[in-house]
Amino acid sequence: MAKSTQQEAMEKAVKGNSLGRDAMRRLAANKAAIASIAVLGLVVLMVIVGPWLTPNNYYSQDYDAIWQAPTLAHGHIFGTDSVGRDLFVRTMVGGRISLMVGIVTAFVSLLIGVAYGATAGFIGGRIDGFMMRTVDILYALPFMFLVILMVVFFGQSLFLMFLAIGAVSWLDMARIVRGQTLTIKQQPYVEAARMAGASGTAIIVRHIVPNLLGLIVVYVTLTIPQVILFESFLSFLGLGVQEPMTSWGALINDGVGEMGRAPWLLVIPSIFLAVTLFCFNFIGDGLRDALDPNDR
């Protein structure tokens, strides 16, 4: 039967592992992943602290410094845009939005996905069949367009974006968690707990979720960049955050309009977005390999 390959690979990769000491050691030996963690930490730090370190703010316009190329002289180290706003502050503030959307939404999708997948896998039988068939059906929908449709009809808001993206990205998680739950359910210690009269919820919370921990960590690190990408995509099209608030996608969109005259407006936010996504993906891959040494 046709299966979604990515999760399949992921399922296989993290088969029944938890975040053991071995895994951490293997991760520590993965130089690319460690470097990614360091770089990502730096980006996060910059994004949080950056706006406080400069006298500029993300909305005020400096008409004496329009289209200022990056320079130390005027205090605009990343330059300014067409109305003289400081790109450094805007990149940092935009980064806050992008990262926040990424992290919050990944957790929303995680909660929904784990709850749904664990329930389906645990109950099994006909209910499982129905629940997973629903996921299959939702999978086949062109979600990006439905999200845009929603944005068009309901207007743009950050909350709607969380909701819309979260509603889309839990499907993968549900599938993976269900598969794992089915496997774990067969384990003797779960059987034993059931014999001992533990309730379904107790078994899910005590036995199944902890066993999924490794998988969940990998999944979250790989979902965050997807969500950030999704948000940037919407913002790039002008359907995400609204002026003067900004995000990396929105900044890149501004940059594209002026790339002939002021390439830094395009290049700097692009670098931040790409580096962040790259780091998350590298860490996710590294974690997955650390949890499953056989695959490497």
């Binding site: 995509f233 790339m259 395009l266 790409a274």
Partner: peptide, 22 residues
């Protein structure tokens, strides 16, 4: 491959335009 996944099209496209067209 990781680069391809991490570089969104709206980053690649303008950079390509800058390089190959501008």
């Amino acid at each position: 491959a990781l680069g391809g996944i991490s570089m969104p099209s709206f980053v690649i496209a303008p950079l390509l335009i800058l390089w190959a067209a501008v």
